[in-house]
Computed example of a mutant assay.
Amino acid sequence: KMVKTNCTIISNFIFLGFTHYPKVEIFIFVLCLLIYLITLLGNIILISVSILDSHLHTPMYFFLSNLSFLDIWYTSSALTPMVANFVAGENSISFSGCAAQMYFSLAMGSTECVLLSMMAYDRYVAICNPLRYPIIMNRRVCAHIAAGSWVTGCLTALVETMSVLQLSLCGNNTINHFTCEILAVLKLVYVDTSMAQLIMLVISILLLPMPMLLICISYAFILSNILRISSVHGRSKAFSTCAAHLTVVVLFYGTALSMYLKPSAVESQEIDKFMALVYAGLTPMLNPIIYSLRNKEVKMAVKK
């Protein structure tokens, strides 16, 4: 039986952010602002080019545009409130603002997990079944894959957000983070959180190791296929289309896994904050750069 206590309902949260590091704080602010602007610019260019250039009306660029759109929202949900707070000289966010921020960053992150695995499947079909590629990855299939990724991401995020926000958050409203990150908010709950943690673990396993397994299987087939290509040019072309996707995958899943599937005994809130910066800022910024620098088609389209 739960004992009812005098509980002050929390109407807003205070972020500790990087206040422990007053010397680094201004540097982090400038860095985040820069990262945010580069992310916006890079992803908007990639989306525009994919829409405007008819040569880029292929499944790969359709998924890339989705990824870019996602990254814009993802970085905006994590970094905009932080930058705004820094300018305003305050560190608070309303309860509903926190809920929205938590939901958006979870939804975008989860969608990206699914989308990256679907992009690996797309590369697999392109390299292992090149002749049937236009039939297998037709417009309808691509639209379904993209919609499926978004729906999965948005629904799982809803389940996670609800499971945490319906718990009694009491008294202490100081989040040791710069954003309403779900694990940081869970630390404020004074009742038993095992159910919420179980839900999160199940969803994390569905969205991290499972898509990663799909990606590994796709790339095992791709690799064995590439090694059978006799021409050096053909081989290097196949490698370069995959290298970009693999770089993004390693960056994204590496940081995500280290945050969500590490043992909870590891008390490393400070490391978590810096990991979240990489996860929310660096990866979305590097995605368009990685994809376009390695890509003649994108370079040509941008020049046009």
Rank of each mutant, 00 (worst) to 15 (best):
L155E: 07
S163D: 08
V141G: 09
M102H: 00
V49P: 01
C142A: 14
V141H: 06
L158S: 10
E297K: 13
M60F: 14
S11M: 05
K304H: 13
L277Y: 01
Y219L: 02
S258P: 07
K303P: 02
L31K: 07
T241L: 15
F13N: 00
V87D: 00
M162F: 14
K304W: 12
L201M: 12
E267W: 08
L40M: 12
L261Y: 10
K4C: 13
R228L: 10
R228P: 04
T247P: 08
S65G: 12
K303L: 15
A88F: 11
A99Y: 08
L52M: 15
I38K: 05
L70N: 10
F86A: 02
S224W: 07
M285W: 01
A84W: 02
S11F: 11
C242Y: 07
K304V: 10
F29G: 00
V191C: 14
S77R: 01
G254I: 02
Y74A: 02
V248Y: 01
I135K: 14
L277F: 07
E181Y: 11
M285Q: 07
F29M: 03
A84R: 08
G148I: 05
K237D: 13
A78E: 00
C98H: 02
M275N: 12
A107N: 04
F221G: 10
A301D: 05
T75G: 00
V185C: 04
P209G: 09
V202G: 00
F18N: 04
I14Y: 14
P81K: 00
I9F: 12
L46T: 01
D272Q: 06
I289N: 00
C216K: 10
C98M: 08
S94C: 03
Y219T: 06
I226H: 04
C142Y: 02
C32Q: 06
L46V: 05
E297F: 07
M212T: 09
D122L: 06
P134Y: 09
S218L: 04
L213E: 07
M259R: 11
K1N: 15
H177S: 14
A143G: 03
F178S: 03
S292W: 11
V87T: 04
S194D: 14
A107K: 01
F62D: 09
V114N: 01
A280N: 06
S76H: 02
T247S: 13
C154A: 11
I290L: 08
S204V: 07
C113T: 07
A88Q: 15
I72Y: 03
L155T: 10
D71K: 01
Y103T: 01
L251P: 06
I47F: 04
P130W: 03
D192M: 05
L213I: 11
S168V: 05
F274I: 01
L41I: 07
P288V: 11
C180E: 02
R294Q: 14
N85E: 04
N129R: 14
L56G: 06
E267Q: 15
H55Y: 15
V189G: 08
L31T: 05
Q101W: 04
H177I: 00
